[in-house]
Design a protein around this nucleic acid. Structure first.
Lengths: 211, 211
DNA sequence: GTCTATATAGAGATAGAC
DNA sequence: GTCTATCTCTATATAGAC
């Protein structure tokens, strides 16, 4: 179950998934407009005209890539947190969520990464639904952070919305620079979690704290 | 001196700058491939064919937008830090740098924001030079952070490269979500600086620290 | 189901009038 | 300098053979 979802039955279904995989990868790498159907076809080992047996349009191809990608990220993050059990600290939950988000986007899945990478290139016709999904996902993290604050693990004066945006920034920017192999994703997740909670300042600072 | 650089002399130069402003804004909003020359022309109040009196190609237009944008960001950040004088703490320098980077990208300048927004859409022909400039800019921040660590303002065990990438993530992701008016950029900069140095965790944490 | 060939539209770029 | 008209190429999408 690396790309697509593997459980293809008929030959037609298999081809369809191969095309989707190729589309996800190509969209992710080149962007929506810069991707030609011929690029997707080549990556899938077929011809541009043949895509139309499986899909109605380039836009529909993108739509399905984005939907699948989003679904997997959201599911995986919820699952991983659920697996921790009710006794886990919120810091541990956050760490697990960050790790899941990063693993999916950086290793597994062009579908997921396309959601972030094409964030601002989605054609108007399908943008509304995808923005709604992103909002739902953001709200999930917002709730997680709010609970952590209520439990006393995050400072009472912290603006939770800003904290979420800063965290998303760290995580989502990593798909711009991360290349597999050099750095372990687990270390990356730990680092982001530690930075978010503890900061990078020296334990005994010389200056002031805040306003 | 809001857009372009204002000091246009001849009518031709003024038009040229108006076209550049339009190109920066359109590229920034729609991306490179999705932008048509007709869009730029419309935004500049002229016709697509007329652009060729001032520029050789769409690619050259992008090239100049990116170069101008990068130049302004780099200059402004260096200037602001220089203005602080040698006695300033590194935390104050970082805060000033963050503020400058955010102000340019979020308020002033489509040229600057295009550099971030089109980061992965730059055509191969001109990519090399721009990547080199981004590396130089990154190295500048890296040095700033390294000096802060040497001065004891950042923990000795902190990975400076990761800290830089996390900070860039927070800052650069903000151009995806920030909309003028709702939130003061100064507050945003303070928040990011505070998050980076101090983290958002409660002063008296219940759990463990690190590995 | 997949191919090749093609219809059709839209893009970047050029030419020449004004 | 800017316009309109147009060349040319490329892209999405369709049609029909196999």
């Amino acid at each position: 179950m690396q790309p697509s979802d593997g459980k293809a039955r008929t030959k037609s279904e298999k081809t369809r998934l191969r095309i989707l995989d190729a589309a996800a990868k190509t969209f992710r790498d080149k962007g929506y407009s810069a991707t030609r159907l011929a690029d997707i076809a080549a990556a899938a080992g077929t011809q541009a005209g043949s895509l139309y047996y499986h899909f109605d349009s380039k836009e529909q191809l993108l739509d399905e890539v984005l939907q699948r990608g989003h679904g997997r990220v959201a599911e995986t993050v919820r699952m991983r947190i659920g697996a921790l059990g009710p006794a886990a600290s919120f810091r541990d939950r956050l760490r697990a969520a960050i790790l899941a988000h990063l693993e999916i986007n950086l290793r597994h899945d062009d579908y997921a990464a396309a959601n972030i990478h094409l964030h601002n290139q989605i054609p108007a016709a399908i943008r509304r639904r995808h923005i709604a999904k992103h909002r739902t996902y953001a709200a999930y993290w917002q709730e997680l952070l709010a609970e952590a604050q209520a439990a006393g693990e995050i400072g009472q004066d912290v603006d939770i919305s800003m904290a979420r945006l800063n965290l998303f920034g760290m995580m989502n920017w990593s798909i711009e620079w991360y290349r597999p192999g050099r750095l372990d994703i687990g270390e990356l997740a730990d680092n982001m979690c530690r930075t978010l909670f503890d900061g990078i300042g020296s334990p005994s600072p010389g200056g002031m704290a805040e306003t």
